[in-house]
Computed example of a mutant assay.
Amino acid sequence: MIEVYTDGASRGNPGISGAGVYIKANGKQYKYAYPLGVMSNHEAEFHAVLKALEICTVKFPSEILSFHSDSQTVVDAIEKNHCKNRQFKPLLENIIKMTNTFPYFFIKWIPSKQNYHADQLAKKAISDQINKDRT
């Protein structure tokens, strides 16, 4: 089973955003930080899950996935396969489509303190984006 931790962060809401993906698989750790441009924090959280699924599609296409997120909004939307926010619906639809390609996909809400690695990666993505814009 592949353990995946995701986090989205924004500096401002909306603001410069980043996604962090931390994966534990087969005794190895994989770390990814993705600048996302300007968006809301919730939107960044959805994008973080999408980025993680893109990675898993390439690296672990036939594995069982156990996702963890500190976003109750994202976890609830994925578990219920429904969200009211029109902005998030296309993101949720893409997530559901991608999860259906794996034998099993689980997602669980975790407290922020248990999502430290993904949080740090999301913040790094924001810092990288700010530093790139300065040059």
Score class of each variant (00 low, 15 high):
Lys59Thr: 12
Ser66Cys: 13
Glu63Pro: 05
Ala44Met: 10
Ser69His: 12
Leu50Ser: 08
Asn41Thr: 02
Ala52Lys: 05
Glu45Val: 10
His42Lys: 03
His47Ser: 01
Glu43Thr: 13
Ser71His: 07
His68Phe: 15
His47Asp: 01
Thr57Pro: 00
Thr57Arg: 14
Asp70Val: 03
Ala48Pro: 00
Val49Trp: 05
Lys51Pro: 02
Ser71Leu: 06
Glu45Ser: 10
Ile64Pro: 01
Leu65Ala: 13
Ser62Gly: 06
Glu54Gln: 12
Cys56Arg: 08
Pro61Arg: 10
Thr57Cys: 03
Phe60Ile: 06
Ile55Tyr: 13
Ile55Pro: 08
Glu63Ser: 15
Ala52Leu: 03
Glu45Pro: 07
Glu43Tyr: 10
Ile55Asn: 10
Phe46Cys: 07
His42Gln: 12
Phe46Glu: 05
Ile64Thr: 15
Cys56Trp: 13
Lys59Phe: 15
Val58Thr: 15
Glu54Arg: 12
His68Ser: 07
Ala44Asp: 07
Glu45Gln: 06
Ser69Trp: 12
Leu50Arg: 07
Ser66Pro: 00
Phe60Met: 06
His68Ile: 01
Thr57Trp: 12
Glu43Asp: 00
Glu54Cys: 01
Glu54Thr: 08
Ile55Val: 15
Glu45His: 11
Glu63Tyr: 15
Asn41Ala: 02
Glu45Asp: 13
Asn41Lys: 03
Phe67Arg: 04
Asp70His: 05
Leu65Gln: 11
His42Glu: 04
Asn41Arg: 02
Pro61Gln: 09
Val49Met: 06
Leu50Gly: 05
Glu54Asn: 13
Glu63Gln: 14
Ile64Val: 14
Lys59Arg: 14
His68Ala: 03
Pro61Ile: 08
His68Lys: 15
His42Thr: 11
Ser69Leu: 10
His47Gly: 00
Ser66Phe: 13
Glu54Asp: 14
Phe60Asp: 07
Asp70Cys: 05
Phe46Arg: 00
Ser62Ala: 08
Ser69Asn: 11
Glu43Ser: 03
Phe46Gln: 03
Ala48Glu: 04
Ile64Gln: 11
Ser62Gln: 14
Leu50Trp: 11
Thr57Ser: 13
Phe60Ala: 03
Cys56Pro: 09
Asp70Phe: 06
Ser66Leu: 09
Ala48His: 01
